[in-house]
Design a binder for these strands. Structure first.
Lengths: 236, 236
DNA sequence: AGCAAACGAGAGCAGTGCTCTTGCATCTCC
DNA sequence: GGAGATGCAAGAGCACTGCTCTCGTTTGCT
């Protein structure tokens, strides 16, 4: 089995992806060049098209991989904290996402930056894309199970959407709590975006401290009503 | 005065910018092509370089214009609300920013999406860039003047940075309140980003309703302690 | 009137994504 | 094991891109 041809194919495919990722990290996604990859490989440009039908297809592959890495980072951070320490888990997840973004700015931009105009995300990206959000949703479910509730009243259409999400994912999370969780998610991503895309220059030089603030504020909002876990070590 | 040559120059410059903006709106910033503009103008591509030294310079011009428009929209929305109705002003500003983003997605992406790798924002973009944030900061100053205070303790380095900002801008805003304002700002931009860049697909179909939620939550956080304005019409 | 600056046109360089043909290597089926 | 189908790399080529340089012409200022 594993004919020489097939093995060469998978190896070359992996090599292309590796070089592509290097290029994206160095020059950004817009400057990804199939021809440059071909040159590095000692091949002619048309040969690369045997492995990826187009530049977009290669980009899609990179996007999927990046989502998986981000998801893995979030999962690992979450898993390292005691299950009942919801605040600690939130902090860990949020910082893991930010740390990953800081460490891999080009990849983060690939996922959360400007979408390429012509490019429509294919179906096979949505599963990996939801991996890191699932970590947050699972945390919400645990909060709910521990008796956490969120105050407030939701607009009926939003409530309906969220009920649908709950049904689809099979998660036991109250719509209101989920809505608060999504607001926290938006604040988290917004803080990272502002920091990473340079909108804080000439404003604040310590984005890390500001990020902590956002995380803490969201924690306060999400877990203020939670009546669990005799207050033990809550510090990160 | 206004020699024919000079007049022709300013007219052509304006025409180039107009065509460039059209192109960005239609095809996105990455697909902006000087050659295409030259074609539309009936000129040869090299002639355009008499007016803009490079593609980046033209993009910078577009960015500045867009920041000005966004700033103007925010200012207008703020001005339409009674000064003492801080909640209403926050709502108006937030919705104005979002509405502008929805109406001009490509321009918004130009401002807040992935920065072009090689591109460093020139000095002359930072003043227009801070125009819409100034609207928010002025609101904070009014809240402060009305006796609004924010709870919580800030990390010393963040507090120092914010004090510097206050000194630079000459704004009378407590650091803690400013920090809360910046968190609200991050949440606002995060919500818009997620909505506009398609990260809510397969999650929530009514981003408008969800956006309202974020705005309301931030309003709650910012103005909970404010002890002003006998509660009158607070509805948008 | 004379001169310098501004200007548009054109050719050209280096790069891009992508297609098509051509010949060789490999794998598969009889 | 040989014959035919398939996979693959190479090369040429098309239609683009940003940008540079040169070369006449037009314009405006002195």
């Amino acid at each position: 089995m594993a004919g020489a041809r097939e093995r060469a194919r998978t190896e070359l495919t992996a090599e292309i992806v590796r070089l592509a990722r290097e290029q994206v990290e160095r020059d950004g996604a817009t400057n990804l060049s199939l021809r440059a990859i071909a040159r590095d490989l000692g091949m002619v440009s048309s040969a690369v098209y045997r492995y990826f039908a187009s530049r977009d297809e290669l980009l899609t592959r990179l996007i999927i991989d990046s989502y998986e890495r981000l998801g893995a980072a979030a999962e690992a951070a979450d898993a390292a904290v005691r299950r009942s320490d919801h605040r600690g888990r939130w902090r860990a997840i949020a910082h893991a996402i930010r740390d990953w973004a800081i460490a891999n700015p080009s990849e983060y931009a690939l996922l959360f930056g400007t979408p390429v105009p012509g490019y429509a995300a294919p179906q096979d990206t949505i599963a990996p894309a939801s991996r890191y959000t699932l970590v947050l949703l699972n945390l919400l479910a645990d909060v709910e199970a521990a008796g956490g509730r969120a105050a407030g009243r939701l607009a009926p259409p939003l409530k309906r959407d969220l009920a649908k999400v709950r049904a689809t994912l099979g998660l036991a999370v109250d719509e209101t709590l989920m809505a608060h969780g999504m607001a926290a998610w938006a604040a988290l991503m917004g803080a990272i975006n502002l920091e990473l895309f340079g909108h804080l220059h000439n404003v604040v030089d310590t984005p890390g401290a500001r990020f902590d603030l956002v995380v803490e504020q969201e924690a306060e909002r999400l877990f203020a009503g939670t009546t669990v876990a005799r207050r033990t070590s809550n510090r990160a």
